[in-house]
Each structure stands twice: as C-alpha cells, then as structure tokens.
C-alpha cells in the first residue's frame, strides 16, 4: 500500500508544485522544454532534408546508408551519450570548446538520438507519396525549392509523425542527459535526470510529482503537434 500512497501523494504534490509555481521545479521544466525543443528543432532541420534525399535520390551505397539510419533509430541513449562524452571531454577532440556538462552538450547528444528517428520516418513519409508526383510538380514549373516545399506539404501527416517521434525520443531519454549534462542543479538538471536522482534518494513522492509533470508536458506538446497533423484530415470520414 506504500506504493499507492506514494503515487497519490506524488500526484497531489505535482499539482501543488505547479500551482504554486515552485521556482525550483519551474526551472527544471523550462530547461527540459528548452533543451528538448532545440534538439527536436535541429533534428528536424537535418533529418527531413536527409529523409527526402534518401527517398528520392539513387546513389551507390544508398541501401547501406538506409540500413545504418534504421539501425540508429533504435540507438540506446546511453550509447549516444557515451559517444558524445568522448568527443566533448576535456581530453577529447572537441574538448577545447568546453561544452561537457552544459545544456548545449545535452542538445548535441539528443540530436544524435533524434536525427535517425526523424530521418527514417521522413524517408518513409516521402516514399508514401506517388512516385510520379515530383515529375508532375516539376512539369507545373516548380523550382527545386518550390518542389521540396510542395512535397513537404503533401507528406505532412507522416512528417509530423516524424517530429512527434523525435520529440518523444529526446524528452524521454535519461542516459545521455545524465552522461553529458551531469544533472547539475540550476545548470543541467532536466526532468528525467531529476526523477532518477529523487528515486535514488528514496524521495518517491517528489519522483512521482516530477513524473506527472513530465507526462503532462509531453502530452501538451504532442497534443499541439497532433492537432497540427490531424487538423486537415485527408478523408472526411469513414466511407
């Protein structure tokens, strides 16, 4: 029954913390949103054009590149964290930038996690389009940029699914944030690393509270993206 008690207490505590606008919690929530927002943004910036390229261009080794992307879609965040740590450690190749244990380091690691997700799902979204569509759009006089924009709009359902998956991937990971960020108070503490820490301390009610806040945050962002995605549905209804 202790577990149920902690859950209930956590839920009440979470609502309380939000309603009271607890500065400590708000800081962590804000950093989580900022870091995950930035990493999703950069992943989309890289992943969508890369997905389009893989979907439409034929080149030597394309199959291999796609296999690598598909494999990396399942990359454990801890592994991504380890790679990025190696790069950013003071003794590492990019050590002079002094990025380790900063929010920027977390963004970099999360981009490594999310780019394959966004790339793979964007590629699938573009490949769902009729193969002859690009030629028909070009025949209407589109420039390369106009063609890309038109295909982007046509594939928007699948592309927003890619964005949602990318955001879901980075907001839920803890291994990479912990390794390259270090869970430093007022600096690199995000919701997931805070939850791990509170559980380690035996502070279950606080952990529960943070978990509800994280869930609420994820739900809100995803709901906004879902409205964007489903707002203009392809079909009016089931025939």
């Amino acid at each position: 029954m202790r577990a149920v008690g902690a859950t209930w207490e956590g839920l009440v505590r979470g609502i309380e913390l939000l309603v009271r606008l607890d500065p400590g919690v708000l800081e962590v929530v804000w950093l989580t949103l900022r870091v995950c927002g930035q990493s999703t943004f950069f992943s989309v910036l890289v992943g969508v054009p890369l997905g389009a390229f893989l979907a439409f261009r034929r080149f030597l080794g394309r199959g291999l590149v796609i296999s690598v992307v598909n494999t990396l879609m399942g990359i454990p965040p801890t592994v991504a964290g380890l790679w990025v740590s190696f790069l950013l450690w003071r003794s590492g190749p990019l050590g002079r930038l002094e990025l380790i244990y900063t929010p920027t380091a977390i963004v970099i690691a999360q981009v490594v996690i999310a780019v394959p997700l966004v790339t793979g799902l964007s590629m699938a979204a573009f490949q769902q389009l009729p193969p002859k569509l690009p030629a028909q759009v070009l025949a209407l006089g589109a420039s390369p940029a106009q063609l890309f924009w038109t295909l982007l709009k046509e594939a928007r359902l699948g592309l927003l699914a890619a964005v949602i998956a990318g955001f879901g991937g980075v907001v839920s990971e803890v291994g990479a944030s912990m390794m390259v960020g270090g869970n430093i108070l007022h600096h690199t503490r995000v919701l997931t690393t805070a939850i791990v820490m509170e559980v380690g301390r035996g502070n279950f009610a606080m952990a529960w509270a943070l978990s509800f806040i994280l869930l609420g945050l994820t739900f809100t962002v995803t709901a906004v993206l879902t409205v964007l995605q489903q707002g203009r549905r392809r079909y009016g209804g089931w025939p």
């Binding site: 009729p130 002859k132 569509l133 028909q136 070009l138 025949a139 209407l140 006089g141 038109t150 709009k153 046509e154 392809r234």
Partner: peptide, 16 residues
C-alpha cells in the same frame, strides 16, 4: 523553358 509549356499526365496526381 518548362514554365512555357504544360503537361497533362496519364494519371493526373492532384494535391491534397
């Protein structure tokens, strides 16, 4: 040059 001509295709793909 393409902007001076127009094509009607066998399967016209209209946008959504």
């Amino acid at each position: 040059l393409r902007r001076q001509l127009a094509v009607v295709f066998q399967e016209p793909l209209l946008l959504n």
